[in-house]
Design a protein around this nucleic acid. Structure first.
Length: 323
DNA sequence: AAGGCTAGCAACCGCACCAGA
DNA sequence: CTCTGGTGCGGTTGCTAGCCT
């Protein structure tokens, strides 16, 4: 049974906000603040709007000190770096950019940065990215897949300056990197609380606590993982092998997606990540050449880099970007 | 000049989380 | 412990202005 809608969608006004509506909402919040119930607010002030719509309008547009457009190069770099590391947690990324909203950052990424850095674009066929033949058991489906792929590609490009057509985006039929399951499982998109809870599970916990230790062949991939939290592999070997081969494994439900409890506070980890990004910016030249040597040798990876994630990239790059 | 295409932005939708009853 | 309502978030879509042919 679904839950009751927050408002009568048939009777509330939808679409663009009029200046008068903005004025009413702004005046009320200026006088009473936003501490009250958003659902009840529109009725109280005579707006024929859904409470969620009012909240969104306030947060994304009417709130003081909001900046729209005109992203700086520094902001570009920060967005790219954070996206490559933590994915599409727009609110977390936006929190590092004063005056920016998650919606703004998201739109900016989708319309400008993504295309500039990764090629392709939005809305499927109109600017179609070459779609990798990676079929997931995950109900999150392609959303999570494309996001993870973008992040891998972005990070590899950032580190090695590799033209996009030579990275895996255009040729990923059977990617040799080992982490499809942990990157793309349903848990990969969820976490509980920032600054309010110490329990965290999902992609971040995997990259913090799991290390890929080998397994160059597809058959070995499932066995290549070691988990520092107690030795439970986050991978299902059967689904991993099938996914890596581009086979629909929807009939084999992932069975080993054990939740790994994250040992630290998310804000601390974000701090660490920001330090890494600054370190990365300062030592960019040290990173170029690591792992991407023409002879396929590993090269050296900077200590600035994010643990776990880099082991994936390193392994992937060592194997020739999916060739 | 007109029609189609593209890019950018605003807003909606649905899900997950959380707190309180 | 369960249920319910409020909130936050990410993904997606609709609309419109500008550009191109």
């Amino acid at each position: 049974m679904g839950r009751a809608p927050c408002c009568d969608k048939a009777s509330v006004k939808k679409g663009p906000w009029a200046a008068e509506e903005d004025a009413v909402l702004r005046a009320y919040i200026a006088a009473h603040g936003t501490g009250e119930n958003w659902i009840a607010l529109p009725r109280k002030i005579g707006l024929n709007r859904c409470g969620k719509s009012c909240r969104l309008r306030w947060l994304n547009y009417l709130r003081p000190n909001i900046r729209h457009g005109g992203f700086t190069d520094d902001e570009d770099r920060l967005i790219c770096s954070l996206y490559a590391s933590i994915g599409s947690r727009w609110s977390t990324i936006a929190a590092q950019l004063p005056g920016r909203t998650d919606n703004d950052v998201k739109n900016y990424w989708n319309t400008k940065l993504k295309r500039r850095l990764l090629g392709g674009g939005r809305r499927g066929i109109r600017y179609a990215l070459p779609q990798p033949r990676l079929i997931l058991a995950s109900p999150a489906g392609y959303g999570a897949a494309s996001s993870a792929l973008e992040r891998m590609q972005l990070s590899v490009q950032r580190r090695h300056g590799i033209p996009q057509e030579t990275t895996f985006c255009g040729s990923l039929a059977a990617p040799p990197w080992p982490a499809q399951q942990s990157l793309l499982s349903p848990a990969a998109t969820s976490y509980s609380g920032i600054g309010t809870s110490t329990s965290y599970s999902g992609f971040w916990s995997h990259i913090q606590t799991s290390t890929y230790t080998g397994g160059a062949s597809v058959q070995d991939q499932g066995a290549g993982w070691e988990s520092s939290s107690g030795g439970t592999t986050p991978l299902s070997t059967s689904t991993t092998r099938e996914a890596a081969a581009g086979i629909d494994s929807s009939s084999s439900t992932p069975t080993a997606t054990s939740s790994v409890t994250f040992g630290g506070d998310m804000e601390d980890e974000l701090d660490m990540l920001l330090r890494q990004i600054r370190c990365f910016e300062e030592n960019d030249s040290q990173l170029v050449g690591g792992g991407a040597a023409a002879d396929g040798s590993a090269g050296s990876w900077s200590s600035c880099s994010t643990p776990g994630v880099d082991s994936l990239f390193q392994d992937y790059v060592q194997q020739g970007f999916g060739q």
